[in-house]
C-alpha cells in the first residue's frame, strides 16, 4: 500500500496546486480587501471603512448603478427561468426519449452557444435583430440571454436525470400511479436538485454576461457588467471595487448553493 502511494505522488505537484489556488483567488481577495479602504486613492491603505459601499448606494453614480442592477436581475431571473423550463423539457426528451436519429444533432444544437466564440454569437445576434428591424433594448438582451443560458441549464439537469434509475417511475406505476403522477410525484422531485442547480448556473451566466449584452443592448440601456465596463474605461475607482465585491458575493453564494443542492442526493 505504501509503495502504491509513493508511485502516485510527484514531488512539487502539491506546491503547484497550492500556487494554482493562490493565483485564482489572489486578485479577488485583493479587490475585496481594497473595497473596504477608507482612502480616496487606490494604493494607500487608510483603514477600514464602508464609504465606497455607501457611495455605491448614495453617491453620484448610484442612480446609474441601481438602474443597471435592476435590469441585470430582471433579465437574469426571466432568462434563467425560461431557459430552465426549455432545458428541463429538452433533457426529459433527450434522456428518456429512447434512441432517435436526431439525438446527436439535438445535442450539438443545444451545446452550440457554448462552442461558438462569444464574440461571434454577439455579432450574429446583433445582425439578426438589426436585419428584422427589432429595436435594441431590454427585450433583445433578454432573448439573447435565453439562448446562451440553455446549455448551462441543460447540462446539470441532464446529468442529474441520467443518474435517476427508471425503476422508480416503474415502481410508482406498479403501485397504480398514473403516468402523469409518476412524472410529477416521482421524476420531477428527483430531478429538482438538477433543475435548481441548472437555474442558478443560468442565472449567474446571464448576470455575468458582458460581450453579447454590449452588442445587443440599445443606447442608454445598461446592465451591471456594461455599466461597470463603462466606468472602468475611465479608470478603476474604489466604488467599482465595492460593486465588484458585492457581485462576487452573489456569485459565490449561488454557486455554493448549487454545489450543495446537487450533492444533497439521498438517492444514488
Amino acid at each position: 500500500m505504501r509503495a502504491q502511494f509513493d508511485i502516485k505522488t510527484y514531488t512539487g505537484f502539491r506546491a503547484i496546486a497550492l500556487v494554482c489556488l493562490f493565483i485564482l483567488y489572489a486578485p479577488l481577495i485583493v479587490v475585496a480587501v481594497y473595497s473596504f479602504n477608507a482612502s480616496q486613492s487606490l494604493t494607500n491603505w487608510e483603514g477600514v471603512s464602508l464609504r465606497w459601499y455607501a457611495d455605491v448606494f448614495t453617491g453620484p453614480e448610484s442612480g446609474k448603478f441601481k438602474q443597471a442592477a435592476r435590469n441585470s436581475f430582471i433579465i437574469a431571473t426571466v432568462a434563467a427561468t425560461v431557459a430552465t423550463a426549455i432545458a428541463t423539457l429538452a433533457a426529459t426528451g433527450m434522456v428518456r426519449g429512447g434512441r432517435f436519429k436526431l439525438r446527436s444533432l439535438s445535442f450539438g444544437l443545444i451545446s452550440l452557444p457554448i462552442m461558438v466564440p462569444e464574440i461571434v454569437l454577439a455579432v450574429a445576434t446583433l445582425i439578426f435583430f438589426s436585419s428584422i428591424g427589432f429595436d435594441r433594448g431590454i427585450m433583445t438582451i433578454l432573448l439573447a440571454h435565453i439562448a446562451f443560458c440553455i446549455p448551462f441549464a441543460y447540462l446539470p439537469i441532464a446529468a442529474r436525470m441520467q443518474g435517476i434509475e427508471h425503476s422508480y417511475e416503474q415502481a410508482a406505476q406498479d403501485l397504480y400511479a398514473t403516468k402523469r403522477q409518476a412524472f410529477t410525484k416521482i421524476l420531477l422531485p428527483l430531478m429538482m436538485p438538477g433543475i435548481i442547480s441548472g437555474f442558478l448556473l443560468a442565472f449567474i451566466v446571464s448576470l455575468d454576461d458582458f460581450i453579447i449584452t454590449n452588442f445587443v443592448k440599445g443606447a442608454g440601456v445598461e446592465t451591471l457588467p456594461t455599466a461597470i465596463f463603462g466606468s472602468v474605461k475611465q479608470g478603476i475607482k474604489p466604488n467599482i471595487m465595492a460593486i465588484s465585491t458585492m457581485l462576487l458575493g452573489v456569485s459565490i453564494v449561488m454557486v455554493t448553493i448549487s454545489f450543495f443542492v446537487s450533492k444533497a442526493d439521498a438517492i444514488r
Binding site: 485583493v30 487606490l42 448576470l207 472602468v232 478603476i236 465588484s244 457581485l247 462576487l248 455554493t256
Partner: peptide, 18 residues
C-alpha cells in the same frame, strides 16, 4: 477551482489589472 470560473469575467479581469 470551479468558484472563480463563476465569478464575473469582467470583474476578474479588472481585478487582475488592479
Amino acid at each position: 477551482v470551479t468558484i472563480p470560473y463563476w465569478v464575473n469575467l469582467l470583474i476578474r479581469t479588472v481585478s487582475m489589472k488592479f
